[in-house]
Structures are given as structure tokens and as C-alpha cells.
Design a protein around this nucleic acid. Structure first.
Lengths: 234, 234
DNA sequence: GCCCCGTGTTAGGCCGCCCTAACAATATCA
DNA sequence: TGATATTGTTAGGGCGGCCTAACACGGGGC
């Protein structure tokens, strides 16, 4: 069932309030979500039509079977993200909570699963005597940031060529992106954009994939991706 | 300047299209964002009123100084999240891209900074001969998930007490949450909810903070937080 | 120069979500 | 029990964002 983010927020909040207070009134929901009661009422009507809540005029709000399931799901996502932000990335609880509220409606099941796996992984490493969490904390405290920084140069020099034909350890300026939509999107996602400087630092056994450095990050480009990138020597 | 998420999406897309195609037409934006051209037009009017884009009837769309700045910011967030999801959590590019699109409007600067630090941390560890990234990949491949699982028991037995007065290594069922709003919210964020079973497994030198186990996760509770949790022996 | 076709634009409607103002029900207390 | 304060609900409006349908502009073939 497709549900708007606000609807999910209402469900989640009803769930949490029922845990905290036992019985949920419209005004509680309004206070908690920072909206006025009429907004809550109309939201409840919508949720009732979809059989997600039980609600009669002047009565208490309760979740239906389906509503409870959905609410728990949203809350589960919230918790996972919150914990991840707070205990792995080290974000303060205020901000972690806010970020989690925003992100909980967008995070895919796979990403969520990966976050949970991450916890398991850290626990496992810890049981082996390696406390990555506290090492990371210490690392951040030392104030080490991304080393190297980005090199940005724009030159008007000679021939443009596909990056796939480039040499190792030469600095290139990206001139243009080609390729079809999927490839292009992926390149842009990774930060491969015109004007940026890039270097091939390594490659796979058959010449591909390329390991490139851009803006201080190391990325891997498949052959079709490298062919879609037009560069010029910097 | 406060800007809706859709407005940010438009700016970002205009930026990316200008990088890819040089000149941006309304129809390009529509195609890319999956909306119809009239929607683009009205969005552009709004952006123009805010001095974020330059745009004349039947003309090309370009970003203003301010618009470019904002677009770069959104794109920067997108990239960081995408990279984090893809290269640290190991999500496939399709899903990572979608998730990043949703999350980019909600992630706080601190969280973003923490993600970048994480990259730096991994690079540093790698330079020390420890490749956490590939270890994590291998770990996930083995299919290890959260060990232990959650224990859920509900008993109707004796006195309720604050968790702060609890003994170590005894299983408690959470009955109720008290405390003021901030504290309650934090507890709920962490998954401390009525009905759950909890155990104190360790504590700080002066009795606090408590290290508790809930649903297989280890959390730390300050004194005020522990006092707000009413429990009963399970 | 004229017509036609594709593309860009305006007009106008719908829906979700929020609001304020006014009204209805309930609770409180003399 | 009836007057009053509190709380909940309906009515109606605004705004953002999307749509379709209808209209305007601009370039290519003749």
C-alpha cells in the first residue's frame, strides 16, 4: 500500500503515543507533530478510510492491525537510522533524531539491511579485539579530514579523448560526458563531472576496470563508463 | 534561504543538465525529473522570483550565482550520500542513487561531514594495512546477521521500579516511559519502548551511565534517562 | 512568403496538507 | 442542573505541485 510520508508520520506518532500514554487523543498527535488539531482530524479520516486506524468522533485513536504493522515498520526504520547515525557516525542525539525523521521515508530495505549488517560487523570485529567505533571516534577527534583535497585546473590545451584511452598517473580534465542515460547518471552520482580533474591510478588485469582518483576519492570505472568520459590533458 | 525539496531538485537537475548538455531547455528538465513541461515552467517562475535562475520565454535556462551555489550544495550532498551508500554500505548503484535522491534534502551538515570523515578514516586504516571495506563485504557475503535476536517476554509479576534502580544482568520488561519530552524522545529513538526486554550489562565507574542490551543492541543510558524508564522483573 | 509541425507556454483543475474561524460536544463546578 | 471553560470538530481558504487541454511561437519544405 502506497502511503504519503505525512501519513506514515501520523501512523508512527500514534504508535509512539500509544506506547507512552496508553490512550491517544487528537490533540496529543497535533502537539507531537507540530500541527493544529483540524489537520490531525483530516489526516485521521484519510487513515480511517484506508483501514489503518480506528477512530470515532470524540473518541480515542487506535491503530488497526494493518496500521500497527505499518507504524512498526516506520518506527523500525527510524530506530535503525537513528542508531546508525548516532553510534556509528557519532552524530548527537538531537540531530540524529531529526535526520532520521527525514530519512526514514526514503531509505530502501536494502540500505536498512546494510546498516544492520554494519552493526553486526562492528560487534564481530569487537569480539576479535578491534573496536572500530572508538577508533573512529578518536580519529574524528584528532580532526583528520580528507587528505589531499581536490585539484581543480582548467586548461585550454590539446586533444580531447575518451578517458578509456588515457594513460596512468596523468592528470586529465573532464570535458564532456557521453554515453546513455544510465551510464551518465551513474557517473554524475559519483562526482565525475566536466571541469573536474581526474587521474587513473590503477587498473584491472585486462586494462579495465580503471581505478581513478577524483576530488580525493578513489572510484572504480567500468569500460563503458570510462568510454563515456571525454577528457583532455590537464 | 528556505527552499522546498522539489525546488532543490529542480536546481540540482538544471545544474547537472548544464554540465551534460551545455544548454538547458524546459523539456530536458521535464524528461529528467519525470514531470510534464507545464510543471517545469511554473517551477521556473518560482525559482526566477527568488533569483535562483535566469529564464526568459522560449529561452535557455541558466542558474544565477545564488542558484549555482545552492545547486552545487545539493549535488555535493547527493554525491556524498551516494558514495557512502555504495562504497561503504555496499548498495548497488541503482538503489544507492534513488536513496541518495530522497535523503539529500534531509541530511544535516554534521551527518554529511561525518560521512566524509568516514571515508578518510577508512583510507587511513587501509594505509595501515587494514581494509575494512573489503572485510565488511566479505562479512556480508557470509550472510552473518545480527546474532542473538531479541527476547520478548511479557510477565505480570511484581513491583515496577525505575531501571536506574535495577540490578546488573537481570532481565527486565519495560512497563512505562516517563521523563520530560526530550528524554522520552531520545529513549524512543533508541528503541526503548514498553513491552521490550532489557538487561543492564555494565555500568560506569560511579554507577552510571548504564550499558544496556535491548533487542540485541548495546546502548548507553545516562542517569536521567534510566530514571525515566519504569521496568518490572521479567 | 506561407503553411505545417513540433515544441514551449498559458489556463484552469485536482489533490494533499496546512491553516483560522466558527461551531459542537464534553467536563467542571457552583 | 445549568452556566462556563475546555476540548474536539466542521467549514472554508491558501499554497505548492502536478496534471490535461488549448493556444502561441519558430523553423523547414515548398
Amino acid at each position: 500500500m502506497v502511503l504519503s510520508h505525512t501519513a506514515e508520520d501520523y501512523l508512527e506518532q500514534i504508535y509512539l503515543l500509544s506506547l507512552r500514554l496508553g490512550m491517544v487523543k487528537t490533540s496529543d498527535i497535533a502537539r507531537e507533530l507540530g500541527v493544529r488539531t483540524p489537520s490531525v482530524i483530516s489526516a485521521l479520516k484519510l487513515l480511517k478510510n484506508r483501514n489503518l486506524v480506528h477512530y470515532e468522533r470524540y473518541g480515542a485513536v487506535t491503530l488497526s492491525e494493518k496500521g500497527l504493522e505499518r507504524a512498526r515498520d516506520v518506527y523500525e526504520r527510524h530506530k535503525t537510522i537513528y542508531r546508525f547515525l548516532r553510534f556509528i557516525l557519532g552524530i548527537d542525539d538531537e540531530i540524529a533524531s531529526e535526520d532520521a525523521c527525514g530519512m526514514e521515508h526514503f531509505v530502501s530495505p536494502k540500505t536498512l539491511a546494510a546498516m544492520k549488517d554494519f552493526f553486526a560487523f562492528l560487534a564481530w570485529k569487537k569480539s576479535q579485539g578491534l573496536d572500530i567505533q572508538s577508533e573512529l571516534r578518536a580519529f574524528r577527534k584528532r580532526g583528520s579530514h580528507i587528505p589531499g583535497g581536490s585539484i581543480t585546473m582548467t586548461s585550454e590545451s590539446p586533444e580531447a579523448q575518451p578517458l578509456s584511452a588515457g594513460k596512468d598517473n596523468v592528470l586529465y580534465t573532464i570535458v564532456k560526458l557521453g554515453g546513455e542515460r544510465g551510464v551518465k547518471r551513474r557517473l554524475l552520482d559519483m562526482g565525475v563531472i566536466p571541469g573536474e580533474t581526474v587521474k587513473i591510478q590503477n587498473r584491472g588485469p585486462l586494462g579495465f576496470p580503471l581505478e581513478i582518483v577524483i576530488q580525493g576519492y578513489v572510484l572504480t570505472l567500468r569500460k563503458d563508463e570510462a568510454e563515456a568520459v571525454t577528457v583532455r590533458e590537464a
